[in-house]
């Protein structure tokens, strides 16, 4: 697909608001490096911010952000413009990679701590800190509208990067119950989050 891209001889991105996500992805698929630079310019800060919220580490978040854009460059076909905006796709990818890295780091630290002390426990931080990751007032309001048990399960799973099994242990609930609460909670959030526009 032909895409008109402004020449750029530097590392600063050239704003091209008129170029659609689909055209940008097609240009990236065709090997146009300037298109990737534009995608980074539009979404790099958000991708990095997402990773930093989950990982609470600048260095690890940079690692994730780099991986997200390199993966997009190498395999742009993973993105389907019919299913989601490019920003949503990149943020979801960043979240997934951040969670993977968080679990690997947690496991590594737990191993190291076990070597030094018998009492080590994986702990992502208190709930109120996790809750602070939610920057959007609209999403915060939507989450507050959920039953507390569903909200806690979703917030711990998504913003603290816990598996549903870890959430269950943390909340002292059966795994199946937590799984169901996550599912029900997400279905309830569709209304307030998607029918009135996006954040």
């Amino acid at each position: 697909m032909p895409v008109s891209l402004r020449p750029c001889l530097c590392y600063h991105w050239a704003p091209m608001a008129a170029v659609t996500d689909e055209a940008l992805a097609a240009a990236v698929a065709a090997g146009d490096h300037r298109a990737l630079e534009t995608v980074y310019g539009q979404h790099g800060a958000a991708v990095f911010g997402m990773a930093r919220r989950v990982l609470r580490s600048q260095a690890l978040a940079e690692e994730v952000a780099q991986e997200v854009f390199v993966r997009f460059w190498r395999d742009p076909g993973r993105y389907d413009p019919q299913r989601a905006p490019l920003r949503a796709f990149l943020l979801r990818d960043a979240h997934g990679r951040a969670v993977d890295l968080l679990r690997a780091e947690t496991a590594r630290r737990a191993r190291e701590e076990r070597d030094q002390s018998p009492a080590s426990e994986e702990a992502p931080g208190p709930e109120h800190e996790v809750w602070e990751a939610v920057r959007s007032a609209k999403v915060k309001a939507a989450l507050e509208g959920l039953p507390a048990a569903e909200r806690d399960a979703i917030v711990l799973a998504f913003y603290a990067g816990l598996s549903y099994q870890e959430v269950a242990r943390r909340l002292g609930e059966p795994e199946g119950t937590v799984k169901s609460r996550i599912r029900r909670g997400l279905e309830r959030l569709r209304g307030p989050l998607l029918q009135e526009g996006t954040t």
Binding site: R83, R135, L189
Partner: peptide
């Protein structure tokens, strides 16, 4: 459908 909601949650983490 569930992914769309998760995308909104992800966007909410960006300041």
């Amino acid at each position: 459908l569930l992914d769309e909601v998760a995308a909104e949650l992800a966007a909410a983490a960006v300041g």
